[in-house]
Design a protein around this nucleic acid. Structure first.
Lengths: 102, 102
DNA sequence: TTGATAGTTCGATTACTATCGAATAACAAA
DNA sequence: TTTGTTATTCGATAGTAATCGAACTATCAA
């Protein structure tokens, strides 16, 4: 698996994070990671193409929200929970709480 | 002052809210409202043109985040704090808390 | 009525972004 | 080595959005 760059959360502007989360597909990805933990790409069961999924993963990764590790032919995606919480306390909780009424 | 439509927060998707907040100028507007309370348009001291400001106010209003009331020739903008808090508990706090390290 | 102030709307431009299919890369199993 | 699986990258396209100046609306004051 190719190496990729993971930005430091400590210098990440909040607007970048919110921009990454403002797409419904990406918000769904994050919600699934929050609720079910780390997933392979196929674990998200979205209706968009593989290349579009890769694009969304890239946006989330460059915003500092997710990381990947390779396991054989699959890439496991996980949230950078602790770092996000340290930089933006309560943000993930607010997103998780918003699941209920939807 | 012309009447305008204020959407119900109860049906507002989180992604719309986050999209409205994902622009640095709009995030700054919300932060100012959080810290200093309601403001006339001129109270924000931003570097963009008046028409651009109007555009950002419209996006924030249509996302259910702000409301306006006319007072003479000025329009006072305020946050819909309680409604936002009821629909997305903790979201405004998370934004307010993120001010500190910046 | 005339002028000043505050803000919105319109039309245009420019830049960004979501999406896809095709090509590619990495890996495992046969 | 060949084949199948998983996922990324590339190039194109279509839609969206940020920005501005100019024109307009509304209100108050002189």
């Amino acid at each position: 698996m190719r190496q990729c760059f993971y930005p430091s959360l400590s210098k990440m502007p909040l607007s970048h994070i919110l921009n990454a989360l403002s797409d419904p597909a990406r918000l769904k990805i994050v919600k699934i990671l929050l609720e079910k933990g780390e997933q392979p790409c196929g674990g998200f069961r979205m209706t968009v193409s593989k290349s579009t999924m890769s694009h969304h993963f890239k946006v989330l990764r460059e915003a500092g929200l997710i990381q990947k590790r390779g396991e054989g032919t699959t890439h496991i995606t996980s949230l950078r929970r602790d770092e996000i919480e340290a930089r933006f306390p309560g943000l993930l909780n607010a997103i998780a709480a918003a699941n209920k009424p939807l």
